[in-house]
Each structure stands twice: as structure tokens, then as C-alpha cells.
């Protein structure tokens, strides 16, 4: 087997999702190459070359690819595939790769296996369906296996110990279709949801956007990322990129604290692999208690400030 990983841009480091993908690729066996594009492709390539287990890094230091436009990413990846004939092409299952990889698959007339959570062999994988309420063991029968891999399913490869060669990615012709206009990133000093070791999430019980401040204060005391249920997002309490669940982010931190969240199926799908789950909810019948290691039946407006107050400060 030979695998090409399309790395997420990492702003000078190998992204956590990419490190997990390297572990997934190693589980398949054979060689592991990495393709990196984006604004910081040169710096990212240097970091990726040091990742344990990576043989070659293809750097696409190209204006057309800086913003991940799908048509151009597809052309660049196809050029790399044409030159090297990989048996597997994978990318972390974040919005970055989900955008272009199915297009690559269609161009190759191959199927894509989405959200691979475990690898059982060169062609046999586990993936969730129905919001994680069913796990399918699937066999990909196409000549090239194309897949997105879930970061939560694989340990991160060591970012040290490798010494891969960095090469320029094969040339391609820009499709020149979509044009980048602007980008607006949510600025936060808090850790990223998908890689944080502690996540606190608020739900409909928080009742308002103003009250969400309670969650931010709690998060700051724990050095945690802040998530939300779909109900809280739909109600406008917080921005959509905070959504944890089937249609949002999938997280698996060491500690997940669900506040005012009932535990709808679609939310559980996004967090039930967390190592320890705590919930605070005044409705003791809420399904969230069924998956929580520690459940506190309480009024969140009293319990959360008290918890925030009593938590030891993190150095």
C-alpha cells in the first residue's frame, strides 16, 4: 500500500488532525506521503517532514491553493496522484478536507469512505452512520481507497523523529473557477474545540447569549474550549462553529462538561467518546445523565458560578 495524506494547514506546525491521519495511514501499512498546501505551506512542510513515519512531503506553495478552493485543490491532488499512483488518499475529516476530497474521488470515479474511525485492513474500515448510532464495517472495492479520517479515532503520531524529504508538488493547471473574496476567522485565546483536553458545552438551558458568559468563565478556569448543543446554536446563543454533534464538531476530550444540555441523539454523537463526561442539568430525567460519569442535578445558574469559583486556578 502507499498512502497520500492531504494535510490540513497548520500555521507552521503539523495539525493535530494530520497527526492522527498519519497514524491511520501507518495502520494501513506501506509508505506514507503528505501533501500540504495553504498560506504557510513552506513552514508546514518543514514541520510535517519531522513527523514520525512520513516518507515524503509535497509542498504546494501556490497562490491558487492558499485558500483551499476545491476546484484547484482537486487539480493539484490529481496531479500528485497521476505522478505517484497511490493506493490510498486520505485527509482529516474536518471542513477543509471534506470540501475537496469527494470531488477528487468523483474525478477518479472512486467512492469515498467518510469519517473512518478505525482501520481493520487495507480495504476494511469502520465508519459511523446515523449520527454514530450505527457503526458500519465496510469494504472499499475500488482501485484507490479514498477516505476522510476522524481525528478522535486515532492517536496522534509523534511530531518528532522523522526526516522526510520535502519536494515541490507536481505542477497543475488552475481551474480558475471560484474566486476567494474574504475570510473571517473567529478569534479566540481558548484552545481549539477538536484538540482541547477539556471541553465545556452549553445547551438550551443557558437561555440567552448573555448567559453564555457563564460558560466562558468556567472554560477560562479550566483552560477549556467552549462548545454548544445544536439547540443553543439554533437559538442564537452562540456561533455555529461551536456546535458539538452529528452536524457539528466531533470531540473526545479527557473531560467534557455538559451544562443545560438534555442529550439529544445528535449531540451525543459528537461527544460520547469523551473519556470523562460530567453533566449539570436540573431535569434529572434528561438523557444526558445516561452517558455521564458524574451527573449533578442542579440549577445551572447556581451550580456553574459555584463550580467556577471553587475550581483551583490553572497555572
Amino acid at each position: 500500500a502507499s498512502t497520500l495524506i492531504i494535510a490540513e494547514p497548520g500555521a507552521g506546525v503539523a495539525s493535530p488532525g494530520t497527526l492522527s491521519a498519519v497514524t491511520a495511514a501507518k495502520a494501513i501499512g506501506g509508505s506514507v506521503d503528505v501533501f500540504i498546501a495553504g498560506k504557510d505551506a513552506a513552514a508546514d512542510a518543514e514541520a510535517l517532514a519531522k513527523v514520525d513515519g512520513v516518507a515524503r512531503v509535497f509542498k504546494a506553495d501556490n497562490e491558487a491553493l492558499a485558500n483551499g478552493i476545491a476546484e484547484d485543490m482537486t487539480a493539484a491532488i490529481l496531479a500528485c496522484q497521476e505522478a505517484n499512483k497511490y493506493s490510498h488518499i486520505m485527509t482529516p475529516a474536518s471542513n477543509y478536507g471534506k470540501n475537496f476530497l469527494p470531488r477528487v474521488a468523483a474525478k477518479l470515479d472512486m467512492a469515498q469512505v467518510s469519517d473512518v474511525m478505525a482501520i481493520e485492513g487495507e480495504d476494511t474500515f469502520l465508519r459511523p452512520m446515523y449520527a454514530g448510532n450505527a457503526i458500519a464495517r465496510v469494504k472499499a472495492t475500488g482501485a484507490v481507497k479514498i477516505m476522510t479520517v476522524r481525528a478522535t479515532g486515532f492517536d496522534k503520531a509523534s511530531p518528532e523523529g522523522g526526516s522526510a524529504a520535502v519536494e515541490d508538488a507536481p505542477a497543475f493547471e488552475s481551474a480558475g473557477k471560484s474566486a476567494f473574496k474574504s475570510e473571517e476567522m473567529v478569534k479566540s485565546d481558548r484552545p481549539e474545540l477538536e484538540s482541547a483536553s477539556v471541553v465545556v458545552s452549553g445547551g438550551r438551558g443557558i437561555k440567552s447569549e448573555e448567559n453564555f458568559e457563564l460558560m466562558f468563565k468556567l472554560a477560562d478556569k479550566l483552560d477549556a474550549a467552549v462548545g454548544a448543543s445544536r439547540a443553543a446554536v439554533d437559538a442564537g446563543f452562540c456561533s455555529n462553529d461551536m456546535q458539538v454533534g452529528q452536524t457539528g464538531k466531533i470531540v473526545a476530550p479527557d473531560l467534557y462538561i455538559a451544562v443545560g444540555i438534555s442529550g439529544a441523539i445528535q449531540h451525543l454523537a459528537g461527544m460520547k467518546d469523551s473519556k470523562t463526561i460530567v453533566c449539570i442539568n436540573k431535569d434529572e430525567e434528561a438523557p444526558i445523565f445516561g452517558v455521564s460519569d458524574y451527573g449533578l442535578v442542579a440549577d445551572l445558574f447556581k451550580a456553574v458560578p459555584e463550580l467556577t469559583e471553587k475550581l483551583p486556578a490553572r497555572s
Partner: peptide, 20 residues
């Protein structure tokens, strides 16, 4: 399709812990 479903199973269930 090029994806053959070999088996569909339930996810590992999580046991409820305790109330504090």
C-alpha cells in the same frame, strides 16, 4: 457501489455513572 457493507452494529454503549 464500490462500498460493500459487511456488517452494521451498535456502537459500544457507555455506562451511566453516578449522580453527585
Amino acid at each position: 457501489g464500490q462500498i460493500e457493507v459487511l456488517e452494521v452494529s451498535e456502537p459500544a454503549t457507555r455506562e451511566a455513572g453516578s449522580k453527585v
